[in-house]
Amino acid sequence: MRGARPDARLTGVTAHAFHSDFALRVNGADRPLTLDHRVTLLDALREHLALTGVKKGCDHGQCGACTVLIDGERVNSCLVFAVAAQGRDITTIEGVAGLAAPEELHPLQRAFLEHDGFQCGYCTPGQICSALGVLAEAARGWPSHVTEDLAAGVGAPGELDADEIRERMSGNLCRCGAYPGIVAAIREVAGADGGGAPATTGVAGGTR
């Protein structure tokens, strides 16, 4: 599938092509591409596959706006070359809605709406993909920097308190400062609220 000529190994660096033909598996579909190797996964998704839900913030792996899931793990797509993501299962925010039930918003998406987990919305796709990664990591019992007992880890996502969520989500910046809503939304889905506050109480209405 790659663009380098078959004899590339024998003839040295000049034989290596600067582009490749390959497919990216995105939201369950194989998408054929011919791309310069310099194209990041982020740019491939946005500029070549029209999946503009994923956002470019800093483009240096610092803000988290470009977070997608690769094989179920949260990843900064700006720091991955698209060509290196071939063969992996990529989920963008456009594919999140179908993850839990067909044609339905994912519970995390609904929770972000209910808890007003955003203002301008630019960081939201990355926040939600990252939060999906957080929930998966917690389901494995993985501890964080603030987990009390490192060896014991966390028993279930529902054990994540606000400090845990803040620590685990620290790679996702929100310039609008919607963090309280973001934390509340993730807590709810993690089960920490245990069906607590009704959705309407968390909605700030027209105050944006």
Partner: peptide, 21 residues
Amino acid sequence: ERFPALAEALLSGASGQLRTV
């Protein structure tokens, strides 16, 4: 369990979506 200093060091570095990669 047995090398907690290493786990702590890793968890104190970078961000969740950098550590996965």
